[in-house]
Design a protein around this nucleic acid. Structure first.
Lengths: 114, 114
DNA sequence: TTTTTCCCATAGACGTTCTATTGGAGAGGG
DNA sequence: CCCTCTCCAATAGAACGTCTATGGGAAAAA
């Protein structure tokens, strides 16, 4: 009998959120809520970024030096923390893009999507 | 200062191993060691399947009813457990293929690989 | 004033992968 | 025959990222 749960359809591919956030910030600084909306929108609502994933990821990226942050006001005049890509963050994004390309191609080979 | 570790370059994209195993078994039954080798080879050695990931995954898939197993002898006359895709496993593979396609396309959209 | 929307944040659970280790048994060299 | 190498399976424990659930403040809208 089939026990336990099959993987959730809505879940992100673990390890890709950091890359998506970094990529979004190439366009310029943004606050967390806006970053999530941009990702959701440009992925045609396929990717859903939960707040419980978003904020830990932002803090993690800042801890690692890929992002810097400053408090400011959002477009709606709300208090918001704006994140900006650092020089190290740009390097990291390049690394993660390469890794993504390599990995998705490798998986494509196995899956016969040549 | 950058603390903690950046993601390991060699790590699999979490959640894709099950799909890769199921896909490999479409060609016919195989034992664990051979499954890993097929995946590594067809991915041009990009994907590396650690034993500590492989066997838990196989047991997980069998628990869920996607695989069935029988003991036999390998090509090298070693004792080996052969895994076979079940009917449910084929359905699950189709689901995971769809999910992979949807997710990788969505990520591609965000990453500007249109 | 009350309610809604925006924005940030954390705790705890969960699942998958990793590193490290154990172990058995056939193959092959000496 | 003995020793080593390779093949094949398995598990424990740690690490990590994501999820669900929850709380809260403050501006806007009703």
């Amino acid at each position: 009998m089939a026990r336990s749960k099959a993987p959730n359809d809505q879940e992100l591919l673990q390890g890709t959120l950091d890359m998506l956030i970094l990529k979004t910030l190439v366009m310029g600084p943004a606050h967390g809520h806006a970053i999530a909306q941009v990702i959701e929108h440009t992925s045609e609502e396929v990717l859903q970024i939960e707040q419980g994933s978003l904020y830990p990821a932002l803090h993690r990226l800042e801890d690692r030096g890929w992002l810097s942050s400053t408090w400011g006001a959002s477009e709606n005049n709300r208090k918001a923390k704006f994140y900006k890509l650092t020089a190290q963050g740009k390097k990291q994004l390049a690394l993660e893009e390469n890794r993504w390309r390599q990995m998705s191609r490798a998986i494509g080979l196995v899956m016969g999507e040549i």
